[in-house]
Amino acid sequence: MNIFRLAGDMTHLASVLVLLLKIHTIKSCAGISLKTQELYAIVFATRYLDIFTDFISLYNTIMKLIFLGSSFSIVWYIRQHKIVRRSYDKDQDTFRYVFIVLPCIFLALIINEKFTFKEVMWTFSLYLEAVAILPQLVLLQRTRNIDNLTGQYVFLLGAYRALYILNWIYRYFTEPHYIHWIPWIAGIVQTLLYGDFFYYYFHSWKNNKKLQLPA
């Protein structure tokens, strides 16, 4: 465990918990894409299949349980909570799941480290995580504004991505045989998507106006 990895995990954790706590407190999920949240729940469910078979550390197991619990809780709030679900704008959250999920299944089946069920699911979760933010970015683009909730959320997720890349660079130079092409490339693609968002986020902040993403 290095400082980049720990800081990356903590910002990732903060992003999910901040979102969950805010939805719980303000009883609103306005501006949040349910589709992105459901995709993240699928990401964690397919990646952590090893939770009961491979013990890595107490830290690892607890973090996995928190990510699973919080991501499914967020989906439950948006879908089922009697007040929160009213603030969900279904008509704006239009991104089609198939355009994201099918290419990821296809890619995971042909590009993986080992053709076993667990390994393909793990690879699928990496590809899916890389693009799961797309419905959220499309929603931002459609509503053309970003409030504190979505802003902080996407900011924390972006910080997590950047820190993980620093973690990989650090591990590459300090650990023997530490080479993982699939998570690295998927992770870089994911970070680039956030980078695009950050550019507009920074631009709107600098000009002190509401975020306007290009059409």
């Binding site: 990732h12 890595i56 990510f67 045989h177 530490y178 993982h180 998570p183």
Partner: peptide, 10 residues
């Protein structure tokens, strides 16, 4: 060798 690298990241 690859099998021995644990998936310790989240």
């Amino acid at each position: 060798e690859k099998d021995n690298v644990p998936k310790d990241e989240l």
